[in-house]
């Protein structure tokens, strides 16, 4: 680029010249009379004018909308957060590379459980559960908003669940599922359900038994008999009550509840859709029973409004279940 205040060289590509003008104007280095010189350049050739308009439109599309509520430092924080997530985007890229090549993928992942070789890495988004049949015939369901890495080479399969929830039907004997808060080890082929949230993690087994330990505390291992659920939080395990929620139902695409407090029901729906769904404290203890389609949030909320004395209020940032007026 030429020095400040100097017009771009004639004959150069119009796009490059337009960029040179834009850069100097934005940086305040265009010098005196820049507007007139820019107008002359734009009028000198139709291609210049087209290039300038194209760049102006692009600049508008890359500017933070004034009414969007985000301050520059918040926008910066969003970009930093999303660009710094190794398993949110970059890991998926690697996974895609492996898809294309049709070969196993070796991913170095760094999290609490330490580095591990992974064969595959999957993530699911809001309201987008996934289901995969693995080479050993077992079926892996990942609920919405889930990120996992699976290694099937070696002695026994190893699944690292970073966030979200999985149901692994037909998990082999010796299979291990780890989350940042717990480690599950199967003693026999069984169905495993493991959930990882910000505060802790839950594990349940079906059709077979397993063992659970809080992360990093193998000495605190406890048996996980079929039908039981243990939750790990703050380095300790305790029995977990699902409060009427069928934790396996997401594998069928539904949220199935029986006499479940409304607040718990709302939290389950919110988790699936990654939306804020709150309820008035006065309604929190209302009981909900029924089966709701997870893929149809509006339908589920409409059904809820028919079942219970409440109204559904849609507002900025999410949904509120409020008491009926009058």
């Amino acid at each position: 680029m030429s020095g400040a205040g100097v017009a771009p060289a004639c004959g150069a590509d119009s796009d490059d010249e337009a960029i040179a003008w834009l850069v100097r104007l934005r940086l305040g280095t265009a010098g005196p009379g820049a507007e007139q010189r820019l107008a002359a350049w734009r009028g000198a050739d139709a291609r210049n004018e087209a290039a300038w308009r194209r760049l102006q439109a692009l600049q508008c599309g890359l500017a933070l909308p004034a009414d969007c509520g985000l301050a520059p430092d918040q926008a910066r924080a969003v970009l930093r957060a999303t660009r710094g997530r190794p398993l949110a985007l970059q890991g998926r890229r690697l996974c895609l590379a492996a898809m294309a090549a049709g070969v196993a993928l070796a991913v170095r992942q760094s999290w609490q459980a330490g580095p591990a070789e992974a064969l595959a890495h999957w993530t699911t988004g809001p309201a987008r559960p996934g289901r995969w049949t693995l080479a050993d015939g077992s079926v892996l369901h990942a609920n919405a908003n889930t990120a996992l890495a699976l290694r099937t080479e070696g002695v026994a399969p190893h699944l690292a669940l970073l966030r979200g929830e999985i149901a692994w039907l037909g998990a082999a004997r010796g299979a291990v599922v780890e989350t940042p808060h717990l480690r599950v080890h199967t003693d026999a082929p069984c169905a495993l359900l493991v959930r990882a949230d910000a505060q802790g993690g839950c594990a349940a087994a079906r059709d077979g038994a397993a063992r659970v330990a809080p992360a990093g505390r193998h000495g605190a291992t406890q048996p996980l008999p079929p039908g039981a659920t243990l939750r790990a939080e703050a380095g300790a395990l305790h029995p977990w009550d699902w409060q009427g929620v069928d934790p396996w139902a997401f594998t069928e695409g539904v949220l199935s509840v029986r006499q479940t407090p409304l607040a718990v029901f709302a939290a389950e729906l919110a988790r699936h859709h990654a939306r804020a769904i709150g309820c008035d404290p006065a309604l929190a203890a209302l009981r909900v029973s029924g089966t709701f389609q997870l893929g149809d949030l509006d339908g589920a909320l409409a059904l809820l409004a028919r079942l219970l004395p409440l109204q559904v209020r849609h507002g900025w940032g999410g949904v509120r279940l409020a008491a009926l007026e009058g």
């Binding site: 599309g61 890359l62 500017a63 933070l64 909308p65 009414d67 969007c68 509520g69 985000l70 918040q74 926008a75 924080a77 969003v78 970009l79 990654a274 804020a276 900025w316 940032g317």
Partner: peptide
Amino acid sequence: LEALAQLPPEHAPAPEARMAAVQML
């Protein structure tokens, strides 16, 4: 959305402004 959720309700942007911000980011 996490960042916007920190805003007080009176400063919450309209849905279209929110979507414009997401697209821009």
